[in-house]
Simulated scan of single mutants.
Amino acid sequence: MIFNRLFGGGGGEAPAAKIAVVRNITIGRMVRLDALAWRRLTGSNFALDRDTLEITAQGVITLDDGSHVHRFYTDDELMLQAVSQSADGSDADDFTLFKPWSSTYPADRNDAAAFRERMREPAWTEAGLPPFQRFWYEGDDRPQPPVELWEAVYYDRDGAPVRQIRQACMLYAREVPPEGQELLLAIAMQPEGGDLTHEIMIGLPLLPAEFSA
């Protein structure tokens, strides 16, 4: 699964270089989705009212093991994510699609610390959602630290990154019939020079046949 490699060992800043085109996906292009990817699931909280994504921003993360995370965003912050070993994304083979569930500002330092502490636990409960079990550190019920990384975000294919965003995150999952999986990504996110926010995203794995550009 995608996140085993994505967050296997923390992250570093992505280089300011021309961004990759992954399976013909990049800023300014449309992605077509197979809506059966979520409509076939029973009891899932992931749903979209459309089957196309207009990509208006792109994020890049370079991990310590040399692999690369490519994130493609819409204006309403849907996120299609791919992982590759090569910087150009030509060998990308793991894909996920996420949509925002909630975004809040911590009330104070204690609130921020409590959110990070929640990310250490083997299960996540969120208002309006069923319980999720930690996907990373599978089989280990001990508290584990969230993954720390930097993401460089671009709005121009040939330009320098506009934002550098520091993130601490943890991934959770639950099984949904028939033979499906729903994901929850908890993120403590802070752009350079910006405010800290707590983000919850709901997602699902995508097969390469379930989208095109």
Rank of each mutant, 00 (worst) to 15 (best):
G12C: 13
V153N: 04
W124C: 15
G193V: 04
G66S: 05
E121Y: 09
G193F: 04
S86N: 12
L97H: 04
R32I: 04
L129T: 01
D88I: 02
L97W: 00
D51C: 08
A113E: 08
A112F: 06
E117G: 11
P143H: 02
L183R: 05
R116T: 11
F115W: 06
T125E: 10
N45E: 07
G193E: 09
G11M: 04
D51H: 06
E126S: 14
Q181C: 14
E13M: 10
G89I: 03
T56P: 03
D76I: 11
T26I: 02
P177G: 12
S67F: 09
T56Y: 11
E54N: 13
V21Y: 07
V21R: 12
N110I: 02
P208G: 08
A160S: 10
Q58G: 10
L207Q: 15
M189E: 15
I165S: 02
E179I: 09
L41P: 00
I165M: 00
D195K: 14
L206D: 02
R5I: 08
L171Y: 10
R32A: 13
H198Y: 08
Q167T: 11
W150E: 13
R120L: 04
L184H: 06
I200H: 10
G89T: 01
I27K: 07
Y155A: 13
L149P: 07
S90W: 04
D156E: 06
V147W: 13
A123Q: 14
A35Q: 11
M30F: 03
P191G: 08
Y105G: 14
E210V: 00
Y172N: 02
F7S: 13
M119H: 01
Y137A: 14
L80Q: 08
L78A: 10
A127V: 06
Y154C: 02
L207W: 11
I55D: 01
E151G: 00
A37N: 01
I61F: 09
